[in-house]
Design a protein around this nucleic acid. Sequence first.
DNA 1: TAATCCTCTTCCACTGAGTGGAAGGAGTCC
DNA 2: GGACTCCTTCCACTCAGTGGAAGAGGATTA
Lengths: 249, 249
Amino acid sequence: MGESVTSRALALLGAFDGEHRSLSLTDLARRAGIPLATAHRLVGELHRWGALAREPNGGYVIGRRIWQLGLLAPVQSGLRQAASPFLHDLYGTTLATVHLAVRDGVEVLYVERLAGHVSVPVVSRVGSRLPMHATGVGKVLLAYAPEEVRLEVLKNLTRITAYTVTQPARLIDQLRRVRAEGYATTGEEMSLGACSVAVPVRNGDTVVAALGMVVPDLRRQLPRLVSALQVAAHGISRTLAASPSVQWK
Amino acid sequence: MGESVTSRALALLGAFDGEHRSLSLTDLARRAGIPLATAHRLVGELHRWGALAREPNGGYVIGRRIWQLGLLAPVQSGLRQAASPFLHDLYGTTLATVHLAVRDGVEVLYVERLAGHVSVPVVSRVGSRLPMHATGVGKVLLAYAPEEVRLEVLKNLTRITAYTVTQPARLIDQLRRVRAEGYATTGEEMSLGACSVAVPVRNGDTVVAALGMVVPDLRRQLPRLVSALQVAAHGISRTLAASPSVQWK
DNA sequence: TAATCCTCTTCCACTGAGTGGAAGGAGTCC
DNA sequence: GGACTCCTTCCACTCAGTGGAAGAGGATTA
């Protein structure tokens, strides 16, 4: 005992992730760290309300009530909806993987991802988080983040590939150039074979998101990609500015 | 007393809807029917976990953890993702409002909606429900619904406009023709000035969704719209069939 | 076919998590 | 300056919640 009922119910919901979209009762209890009988009761309540749904084979999945609430989250109803047409245009003209991301603490949270046809290893998934220092969108968000966030990230530059920037001074210099030139790039720093370029998305003066693309090679097409990204980013910013009723961060 | 802690926490989450995306603590307590002190404690827990977020002005909004869980719901990760490219293609070629909907009990649940430029009154919103008998997607879903669902809907044919079909025999005949011809239409039955056409989306033999469009007038362009909808619906079906790992309903 | 294992459901003696009215602080408005 | 509203905190009181155990049913294995 000692844990609240609410925290246990939330732990049950939190047992689901990208790799575990359907869970048996026993797995739910185990992953949430809750005795089976207790889990059974709480899962029953979540199911009756619609937070969970039960499949014919007995497994539980996230229910439609959570899906509907998720649509109300500012990140969904504001940024993602505003950005969607521009992301599809961008994807349509380049056929590369397109990302829209926001900062979440000291990580990048992927808000939207349109998968490209080009054979490039892409590890992002909508709703997932990746490190800021090794991704294009992450470098953009880091460049405009509060100083305390930047300091926290700079303390923990883990190597992901042989090309990952792990020296603080070098990353600081890159971030300064992001602010000066208006875009960030990476070269196989997150995945071998994948390069990226990203630009900021502003709401007024505030950088609220980053828009990026992943391609196998940047060398010949960088100016064209930067231009296309900036056009899309401006479009998103105009749309955000035109919808003052929806607040989001 | 008498209500469970879990049901109260869920009631707080359920206080949010399309018209109430940001709520003060007092409003949350009121809408959830919970004393202020109790609401304060439970909202604090939801906030700490990330189910709710607090805005600078003190209002609460749905938090990112709910948004992320919502992405895991089968309706999101299966149908909606599979359908997205086809919906954008359809929208791109017609510029009309495009809907993707599923049956939820005896109502239509709108899973995706791409808003058109044509000035047609459209009342649907993603995540919302509308009656089955007065919408194109609803008639499709009703035509292929279990008998007991059909009987339940037929008992309650409320009039929405002067053109709404409220006689059971007439609707039964229309549903038979939906199954025979492969598409449903409406003519100002839900909103004056709005006509719609919809087709079934199948997964194997099962009709799992309906794909529809809303236009001001159907008379000259019905065959072309039906054809475009069916092409898109087949594409969605093929994509669903190719992703067996994701289960959804 | 039988034995074993696992999941899920139900029960109930026990207990501490949860309750909510009241009071007070802070901010806004007139 | 007073009135009003929202939010936060307190704490005496109580019943909602707990979880080990037992059993049913289905799946797996020998």
